[in-house]
Design a binder for these strands. Sequence first.
DNA 1: TTGAAAGCGCTAACAA
DNA 2: TTGTTAGCGCTTTCAA
Lengths: 339, 339
Amino acid sequence: MAGKNTPRPAVIADVAKLAGVSVPTVSRVLTGAARVRPEKERLVLDAIAKLNYRPSATARALASRQSHTIAIVAGNTSQYGYAETIRGVEEEARADGYTVTITVVETTEPDEVERAVALVLDQSPAGLVVLKFDPPGVAVLERLPRDIPIVAVSGVRSRDVAQAVLDESRAAEALTEHLLALGHRTVHHVRVPPSRREDGRTTGWRRALKKAGVEPPALFEATWSPESGRTIGQEIGRDREITAVFCGNDEIAMGVIKGLSDVGVRVPDDVSVVGFDDHPLAAMWSPALTTVRQDFGGLGARAFELLRGAMSGDAVRRSSSELPELVVRESAGPPAAGR
Amino acid sequence: MAGKNTPRPAVIADVAKLAGVSVPTVSRVLTGAARVRPEKERLVLDAIAKLNYRPSATARALASRQSHTIAIVAGNTSQYGYAETIRGVEEEARADGYTVTITVVETTEPDEVERAVALVLDQSPAGLVVLKFDPPGVAVLERLPRDIPIVAVSGVRSRDVAQAVLDESRAAEALTEHLLALGHRTVHHVRVPPSRREDGRTTGWRRALKKAGVEPPALFEATWSPESGRTIGQEIGRDREITAVFCGNDEIAMGVIKGLSDVGVRVPDDVSVVGFDDHPLAAMWSPALTTVRQDFGGLGARAFELLRGAMSGDAVRRSSSELPELVVRESAGPPAAGR
DNA sequence: TTGAAAGCGCTAACAA
DNA sequence: TTGTTAGCGCTTTCAA
């Protein structure tokens, strides 16, 4: 009467039975938690292969109270910097056999933040990587319990959490100094949405100007969209006082250059423009963008390293950041005589 | 003697006790699986709040044999099209309370493919979205069991799996016809790494040429890097026979334009170049790119809709694709008289 | 080195 | 509508 009805996936008990050992023994060869006599191990392995058995990560997580999942929380997934950072985390995590989940939180609205926190915590991940490049990321970080391994990733150092950081302020400072050294009296800044009151890029720019004894001019505020850079570029083009512009990222810089060209202003002949990040398209642009390289992939990888340390109970260590690397191309030059 | 030692997170039994009801009753108010007398529900809700209780998704998944996780498998996460598609899936999934995991598989090497499959299956996700824009994605799809809800996402339709597709071949055809209508004798094609022997973009290009009675010229093969487009652009620039170029994506088109300009060839005066996707920077480029819009975010969203259908046991439905939308800007024009 | 027994935190079936 | 009883598929004591 009976036949093979639903070919129910094999469970550990099936393996144990086929191998003629107990369930815990199978578990032991699976996890390596204890020595198992080689011959039995063989039997178990054979049974596993024959049954095409795969342990349930869920049951495992429940029984052992530790999952092999890490969660990434980000305000965004497709912006260049975010995407690359996520790629870096995922790559390292995968190499270590971790599964990564990703949760995006778009605004700082309490409801949404709570929801994201809940979504993340419900999975009881082994660890968390929070991208705090923006306010939503910061907000989530604040709501997270501190008894679970967390690494924050950002452009500015802050206290209280392990962090992988990219030294944005030094990079911005170097870039601004580069412009000043070219002969510009001052440097204007188009900033991208900051994570707090002020982000590292803006801080570095301000610092370089202060050092040079010049009062920082008013900021231009862009969104993440290149279009917004374009609008600002047109505005800048009409202001004949401006000779050098430092943009919060390369995409905005490209928009600014477009806007400048819309109103007949040439780069770098009339106005110099520099970006930030060294986006893959920065070198393709005309003029090729002078910018500063940010190794987002490496940043993500470092974040995972830190997290692994935290998960295995090591002392919490904040990662040192790498030196910013200036990439001088064609979009910045000496100020025009006429302007 | 005893005190509050480790503040162990509350579990369902704690809630039941505090509320003075049984564990299943708590479960019922949590899941809504059955009616619970309002007054008891209140008690339970209060207890939950007081204890700051959050159900364990792991235990839930184990007991109910269904998780609230969906897995995305992709060959890549940071390329524009991939990143946007993933964003679309994640957004929809999140709105539905699903957690999304992401697993990347970089090559078609059997070991790596197996590893990715294992990593994904071990989580026993409720459903899978496989981005088969490239060979690794295709390879994973082939190795996946068919008894779990799967939706494939791609630019070409194929049998046997539910799919969300973007009609790339029609889009490519329209673009090629646009170039032909401008007066070009033929159109050359720089293709990006195809998912199989040939992808939709190449197919559509070929079809348009055939229809026009012209024999498709030899292909140029680019990688995903804009740099490779640049090299090809330089090559194309030296060939005075070529007047129109259709590139597999916008980033490559930007590279090609750069390469062309490296060797003194102007776009669109000397050579017309069109891209594909309508990348956010396409409009910022000089000249602004003529291209065709691909709604990757929408594609991802549709993929999730399909998946939700499959997960709830609906008839498997393949999504219809949307009409390609030609975006005519400045990078293509009539052929130069002299070339 | 191995097995028996006891959970992990929850949901499902079944009576009451 | 509710509680009792059984698990879900594993890992973890604890003896042997």
